[in-house]
């Protein structure tokens, strides 16, 4: 690990100033991803700014029935918050589908959305990786690519975003609150992460010097029709090969009123296609419709060889997840049998 200087920020403006004034500085929250990346020499900050003392741990009620989740609220605090469980069970379920109890206790909300890909090549400094070292090439293209993207990849990078929580936040149209040298601004969740294009080193649309301060959720009508379905190589404590966050509002005569589908494990960001979702408003909430939804969402999917299986896996997962959401029987995150 590269040696670094260490300071503790007492205010958000302290942290922003420290970040903006030193291009080698990085913020430290839970550390579950950053410290790991530093041990592998994938990330080599010259200065660490510890933000754990900032007053960003609260989960607050908003007047419209929504919630504001502070950037330092732990993943466990979010998953087990009674208001999250009651109003956003999709979010709670997705958080509990990820990592382990120990990691969720340490990992923060802001850190979760800023975590880096688990692409093997990104993690191995002896191999080329355009995300780690722009211009060095991509080892995964034509290499070991079983875990890589099937949607939105570029000829520079085929890595996927590893978060479960973010897939739910994308489906729920969350808003990311950030603060930087020029003040505060809101970023819609689906515009927070970006596709790799020709700048895969850049995971998100924050400017240098900006930091995440909170996630905001509006009131919603999805608490009874949702699921987070995650498929992975072992039943727990593994990243998704494919995951689906589904939420639905269904009319009394069984028609889709509002449909949300976000996919994890398939792209450089949680994958959502709002235009495609809108096309299915008014359609009957049944398996035939769900099959059409899946095919529509995956129309542009492209395999890399070893990960070709993800395309039919994603199709079946979307159909299954939408059936679970429509029936009001979400995937249980402890008993892993898929209903």
């Amino acid at each position: 690990m590269r040696q670094f200087s260490y300071s503790r920020a007492e205010t958000v403006s302290d942290a922003v100033a420290a970040l903006a004034s030193n291009p080698e500085a990085q913020l430290l929250a839970g550390g579950t991803n950053l410290v790991d990346l530093m041990k592998y020499n994938v990330t080599r900050p010259g200065a660490i700014v510890d933000i754990n003392r900032l007053p960003l741990k609260e989960i607050e009620d908003l007047p419209n029935g929504g919630l504001r989740i502070g950037a330092l609220a732990s993943n466990s605090a979010v998953a087990y918050d009674p208001r999250v469980q009651e109003r956003y069970p999709l979010l709670s379920s997705a958080v509990l589908a990820g990592a382990s109890a120990q990691l969720r206790n340490a990992a923060t909300t802001g850190g979760n959305i800023l975590q880096r890909t688990r692409c093997y090549y990104f993690y191995d400094p002896s191999t080329p990786c355009n995300k780690r070292e722009p211009g060095s090439g991509c080892g995964a293209i034509g290499g070991v690519n079983r875990i890589q993207a099937i949607l939105g990849a570029s000829d520079k990078c085929i890595a996927v975003h590893p978060s479960d929580m973010c897939v739910a936040l994308a489906a729920l149209d969350a808003v990311v609150e950030v603060e930087g040298p020029d003040g505060k601004r809101d970023i819609p969740f689906t515009e927070f992460h970006r596709l790799p294009g020709d700048r895969p080193e850049s995971d998100n649309t924050m400017a240098r010097g900006e930091m995440v301060t909170a996630i905001r959720l509006e009131g919603n009508h999805f608490a009874s029709h949702y699921t987070y379905l995650k498929l992975r190589d072992r039943l727990s404590y593994a990243f998704a090969l494919v995951s689906v966050a589904a939420a639905m509002e269904v009319s009394s005569d069984g028609a889709i009123v509002d449909l949300r589908v976000a996919l994890g494990g398939v792209a450089h960001k949680p994958w959502r296609d709002k235009l495609a979702e809108a096309e299915f408003a008014g359609q009957p909430a049944n398996e035939e419709t769900f099959r059409q939804v899946a095919r529509r969402l995956l129309a542009g999917a492209k395999g890399q060889g070893e990960n070709d299986f993800k395309i039919p896996l994603a199709e079946r997962s979307i159909i299954r997840a939408l059936k679970q959401a429509a029936s009001g029987r979400p995937q249980d995150q402890s008993v892993k049998a898929i209903q």
């Binding site: 430290l28 410290v35 660490i48 109890a101 120990q102 990691l103």
Partner: peptide, 8 residues
């Protein structure tokens, strides 16, 4: 409970 290896 936390992983002490990932805590500075």
């Amino acid at each position: 409970r936390v992983n002490s290896c990932l805590k500075l």
